[in-house]
Simulated assay, not measured.
Amino acid sequence: MTQQHHPWQRYVALGDSFTEGIGDPEPTLPGGHRGWADRVAEVLSRGTDDFAYANLAVRGKLITQIVDDQVEPALALHPDLITISAGGNDVIRPGTDPDEIAVRFDQAVERLRSDGATVVVFTGVDVGFSPVFRGIRGKVAIYNENVRAVAARHDCIVADQWSLGEIQDTRMWAPDRLHLNSFGHHEVARMVLAALNVDNDLQPMEPEPLPAASWRQARSEDLAWAREYLVPWVIRRIRHQSSGDHVLPKRPEAGPFA
């Protein structure tokens, strides 16, 4: 497929582990992860002279941290395309209010739109398929409606993960069940490019997902997952720690994708 020209030359990605690319390891890239944002930048950079890409996302960050630490540095890079996914780590925490989270999100988006850049925002995944997160499905849906309202208010593009059925499948997720794997990140990249109306040659479900696990294997994996990921996550919450403590952005400066 011949890729149509697009208008963007400087792309900056903001957010948390989702945008950093956790779950999609690639040791040859900055930060050791690829992810959907890198995949989008790869496509946008083809045939675009002087294309520059920065990724300021850091795993574990709450929306206040993203607003305080990433918004102004992003604007200082003078992007004409910005993606921001924020609030997910807040929403999954017990006792948080999706309406209050959305207020901070609105403030961030208003500031990011101030220089006229195209801004892409994300709805959360429909977690109804997940036994672990099914209980907060309604909370995610409320936050999604707030995100849509923010997008309408500030003329943003919505990348709609809620309706992305391809990732409502455990085979699209990393062993920690919190992050997409390479297959999932690939599908999100395709969705973002579609939202931007950029033709590309990324094919559905390629690479192919892993074969479905047997029931016995799945239950064994449940126990292993709880020991390796769930218990440490709970301990970090109790200690008010984040997986992103002391982690720096993988692409703090806008430069050629290479």
Rank of each mutant, 00 (worst) to 15 (best):
W162T: 07
Q4N: 15
T96L: 06
V127A: 14
H240V: 03
E26S: 14
A141W: 06
E110F: 10
V58H: 12
A13P: 05
V121W: 09
N200E: 01
A141R: 13
W36E: 00
P249L: 06
A226D: 06
H5L: 03
G21M: 07
H5G: 06
Q3P: 04
I92T: 13
L164S: 07
L202P: 04
A13Y: 05
E42H: 05
G15D: 01
W162E: 00
I92W: 08
V120A: 07
R10E: 00
P73Q: 12
N55T: 15
I63K: 03
I82E: 11
I238S: 07
R227W: 13
H5S: 08
P209A: 09
G31M: 07
P94I: 03
N200D: 03
R93Y: 04
Y11Q: 09
L14W: 02
L202Q: 14
F18H: 00
G244Y: 14
D115L: 09
R251I: 07
I157N: 12
S163G: 05
P7K: 11
M172T: 03
P94E: 09
A102P: 00
E166R: 11
E100H: 10
P73S: 06
L202G: 12
R216Y: 02
V58I: 09
T19L: 01
R46Y: 02
P175R: 12
R239M: 12
